[in-house]
Amino acid sequence: MKEGYVIRDQSLPHFLTVTIVDWVDVFSRKSYRDCVIECFEYCIKNKGMTVYSYVIMSNHIHMIVQSNEGKLSDLIRDFKKFTSKTILEKIQSEPESRREWMLERFKLATESHSRNKNFQFWQLGNHAEEIYSEKFMWSKIDYIHFNPVRAGIVSNPQDYIYSSASNYIDLKGIIDVEIVQIPVVNVLKSSSVVKYNSYEK
Rank of each mutant, 00 (worst) to 15 (best):
M102S: 07
Q66V: 04
V51E: 01
F121V: 05
E200M: 10
L12M: 15
L108D: 15
L103H: 07
K201S: 11
I87E: 00
R29I: 11
E38V: 02
K81L: 12
I87S: 02
V184S: 15
H145V: 06
V154H: 07
N186M: 10
L72V: 04
V194R: 13
M49N: 02
Q120W: 03
S53E: 06
S198H: 12
K2T: 13
S53W: 00
E41H: 06
M137A: 12
V26L: 08
D22L: 05
D170K: 12
H60L: 08
A165K: 03
D142R: 09
Y32N: 00
Y5R: 14
V18E: 04
W122T: 04
Y42F: 13
F79N: 01
I141L: 10
K71R: 11
I144F: 01
P13D: 06
V185P: 02
E178Y: 09
M49S: 04
D176L: 04
S139W: 04
K30S: 12
Y160G: 02
F119L: 14
A109R: 05
S31C: 15
N186F: 09
Y52E: 01
M63T: 01
Q92S: 14
E134M: 09
K85D: 11
I56Y: 01
I179E: 06
I179G: 05
I44Y: 01
E96L: 10
A151K: 14
G152C: 08
K117M: 10
G48L: 07
L171E: 15
S112Y: 11
A151H: 07
F136K: 13
D78E: 14
T86S: 14
V193D: 07
D176Q: 12
I175S: 04
V36S: 02
I141K: 03
I175W: 03
I175Q: 04
I64N: 00
T83N: 05
I61R: 00
V55E: 02
F27I: 04
S67T: 03
M102D: 03
N147S: 09
I20S: 03
N59G: 06
E100T: 12
K201C: 09
A165R: 01
S97G: 15
P183W: 07
F136E: 14
K201D: 11
K30I: 14
K30D: 15
N186P: 04
P157C: 08
I44P: 00
R77C: 10
E3T: 14
S11N: 13
L12F: 06
N68F: 03
V21T: 14
H62R: 04
M137L: 13
T86Q: 12
Q123V: 05
K45N: 13
L88P: 06
F136Q: 13
I87W: 02
E69N: 12
G173W: 00
E96P: 01
E69V: 08
S53N: 10
R8M: 09
S11Y: 08
S166M: 05
K85V: 08
H127S: 15
R98V: 05
S114V: 11
R29H: 11
S191K: 12
D159G: 05
G48F: 04
V185S: 12
L88H: 07
I20D: 01
W101N: 11
V187L: 10
Y199K: 07
V21Y: 00
F146A: 00
H113P: 02
Y143D: 02
A128M: 07
G4R: 13
F121G: 02
R115M: 10
T83Y: 03
R99I: 09
V187C: 09
Q120Y: 05
V6I: 14
N118R: 15
F82W: 12
W122E: 04
I44R: 05
I61Y: 01
I175F: 05
